[in-house]
Design a protein around this nucleic acid. Structure first.
Lengths: 290, 290
DNA sequence: AGCATTGTCTGACTTTAGTCAGATACAATG
DNA sequence: CATTGTATCTGACTAAAGTCAGACAATGCT
């Protein structure tokens, strides 16, 4: 009843019935669930037939029939892939887009009503983020993004907000050496965002300089994604990016108010060095040779 | 991507595939899901056929056939209900108990592996409790329990622990006027536990005295279940219990370090009165005439 | 060019889930 | 004791999901 396993299982039961309710609402549009799922997968940008099939785990025969039934309804069109005529690419027709939008509205409405029913919506959302990150930890994708992209800017905002909370004196980005976006773009550098499904949950910047080394900047992991080893993965990815850019020496600065960061650097081959810049915030400096 | 609705939907997707995986693992025992669900419902103590049918939402014809197939497998036996021969009662055979235990092991193993994969298991469990409570808020059952039952004692332990955290001077139950269990049993009083599925998430005690009034004691709501109006429901239930016991006057004491409690009393017809006991912890005293 | 491989489609099939209209046996009621 | 109601069961049906073996065309490889 009260042990951890029971609590997980209670959660499973609660969530199973909630998920079942969403499935049921999807049936309200007069189409079997299988066809609805294919339509939605296509609507969400999975145009390649084999991609949809893998995503939904369908047999190729079944997949083909579901496509046919959606075609008969006039909701999708398929054509051969331009590079490989064996592969087929599906797209929504005008009617298909309308139908997809109707499913989106259903999903959004049920999500909104869940939030509206709940007084402590922010706590609920934080709990959902945490669980979703834990469940999809094997599917966290590290992707190179432009440092000015929505995803990157979301991460940076969250990162600055967290520094503001953790530094006694707060954090004002204009006082810090804010790296120029172009220093974190290839070929000078790189910016990597960790995506869990559609949510950015971590980032790291590799900032090129003219001093014979590159800097690691803006390493951030969302609170909901801590404990998954994501910081290490981001760091490894940034080091790989540095190697592809023929960068042999990395430096970074950090603050002793972020002990978990210092710990990570010390255990992954970084060496503490004297201060190498005049940024007012950091008080710890590291270097690593690749 | 980052708005509340997207976060809920990301959670839904993450959880759908995790839950789907559990269903799939249940298929590994060579039995359709429907039959497995019936077997598990019976294993969990739902012996009455109509009870299982309601719980699983099955048509009576389908239910009958699933029972038959489990009987053919030698996993269950059915017999007429002893008070009403129309109703049937199902029970597991020896082989059925083994099979049920195997399903339990599957569920437990997957729950354990989820926890084991995760460094921050306690945070994950807290998030799961919160979400499960929010999703099942319409199914929270208030049930009278013996104050010495496992469920009641779990609630009281949690209650004392919370007081210890919230009182500056801590909380030592031996210094407080700990109500005797028999004062919170009928006919002198009552003890009510709020159950969400199998988890106790709140409690309240009605303690009989010999002074012409009864006291409300040990009103507690689990952190994961706050914001659902559960405190008010527990209080209403305790007042109802008092009425059935012909108690006309209620008193309670509380502490100003628990502002949400004082707020609840003030808005539900309680009147502040002078101190009526010498317990060292409370500093606020209320009375309500029924 | 010849041959194996790949991606999709078709037809024939099975299993699972679910519906619905009686049939049957028992219980409650006046 | 007849009537009405209730719980379950049976038979006949449908829809949906899934499986499997081959067909077919395009592609890749030697």
């Amino acid at each position: 009843m009260l042990d951890p396993v029971s609590r997980v299982r209670r959660f499973n039961r609660a969530v199973t019935s909630a998920v079942g309710a969403l499935d049921t609402s999807f049936l309200g549009r007069g189409r079997p669930l299988g066809a609805a799922r294919v339509l939605n997968a296509i609507g969400h940008g999975r145009s390649d037939v084999s991609e949809v099939r893998d995503y939904l785990g369908l047999d190729s025969g079944l997949m083909s029939r579901l496509l046919r039934s959606l075609e008969d309804e006039g909701l999708i069109e398929t054509q051969a892939h331009e590079d490989d005529a064996r592969r087929r690419v599906a797209s929504l027709t005008r009617a298909g887009k309308r139908e997809f939008a109707a499913y989106e509205t259903l999903s959004n409405t049920q999500a909104e009503s869940l939030l509206a029913r709940n007084a402590q919506a922010e706590a609920l959302l934080a709990a959902m983020d945490l669980i979703a990150s834990a469940l999809t930890r094997d599917r966290i994708a590290l992707t190179e993004r432009d440092p000015r992209s929505d995803e990157a800017r979301y991460c940076l905002r969250e990162y600055y907000a967290e520094l503001g909370r953790r530094f006694k004196q707060g954090f004002d980005v204009s006082l810090s050496r804010d790296p120029d976006a172009k220093d974190m773009r290839r070929p000078r550098g790189s910016f990597i965002v960790a995506m869990s499904d559609t949510l950015p949950i971590g980032c790291i910047g590799l900032k090129g300089t003219d001093h014979g080394y590159a800097e690691i900047k803006r390493l951030w992991v969302a609170p909901s994604a801590r404990g998954l080893g994501l910081g290490k993965r981001l760091m490894d990815e940034a080091e790989d990016a540095a190697r592809t850019l023929d960068i042999a020496l990395l430096r970074l600065d950090t603050n002793s108010a972020l002990p978990e960061a210092g710990q990570l650097y010390r255990t992954t081959g970084w060496r503490e060095i004297p201060r190498f810049n005049d940024d007012p915030y950091p008080d710890l400096f590291f270097e690593k040779r690749l």
